[in-house]
Amino acid sequence: MLIKKILSMLFLIYCSAVGYSQTDIDAIMMSKNNFCTGFMYTHNSWDQYWEGTFKRNNQNLGTVSSQMIGVMGNYGLRDNLNLLFALPYISTKASMGTLAGQKGLQDLSLTVKWMPIEKKWGKGDFSLYTLGTLSAPTTNYVADYLPLSIGMRSKTAMVRLMLDYQVKHFFVTGSAAYIFRDRVTIDRPSYYTTELHNTNKVDMPDMTNYNLRTGYRSSTWIAEAVLDIAHTQGGFDITKNNMPFLSNQMNMTRAGANVKYTFSSIEGLSLIGNVMFTLSGRNVGQTTSVGAGVFYIFDFNKKKNKS
């Protein structure tokens, strides 16, 4: 089961990490005519952030937190071709200061995940995946209100190449992605980055993402350690004591762990939990994320067979 969340990567970047354990980034495919769906809850918070390279707190924000409830799903078009979606509802708040938190439905993402190669190699199994994701905001939420906006409002397209190697129950998965980000329209007619812009359109720098995960994988348990690196290709630093802006350079390196348990007593039901810490960053909060989810697989093959 694999659910995903691309925007997590972008959004979690500042407002907090929406770390799903069930992501498109794992090397697992949904079988043909199976539909896995469920909910994920994630809590993200930070009280330290990087203003450029300067790490600081801010008594006018205190702890910035966000809560995400996402509905997501993955349908097996074929055994090696899956279609995934995710749609999160997010609410944000700051524990100190006067700024009002925001809440609302964020961005819908759709992913095509394809495994063109799966073969024996040495003692284990090698597989290769390509993923393509589109995301777009589903509501007219406020973007230009960092760090309390619920998202960036940028339409994105991502391509990812992923390799997996598994020997018995131990595996390594590595992937690299490039994320194209469309310009964003904000509510003001002019803004300053490193120069004055007389427009309400903001060009968003693209992003790259590298993800490495390794651990134990069986039909009942998955336990993995994760390293995730996201980099903005361009953008500028928050100047001293300024507010963050959408087109800042936002980088972060995060590490954490995922656990997934699939029940054998109730076929198709699984629970997941995860935690992610931010090791280093630039123009982002040092987010800690804790998430949990429940998922269920509907097998349409069975129904067909029965009927």
């Binding site: 393509g132 589109l134 397209a157 490039y178 194209f180 469309d182 427009t199 060009d203 693209d206």
Partner: peptide
Amino acid sequence: IGSLLLLLAFMPGCNRSIEDR
């Protein structure tokens, strides 16, 4: 699929010059 992915990839990227009034 390959061409679909390519298409997805370049959709937001195609219109990149900033509109300054």
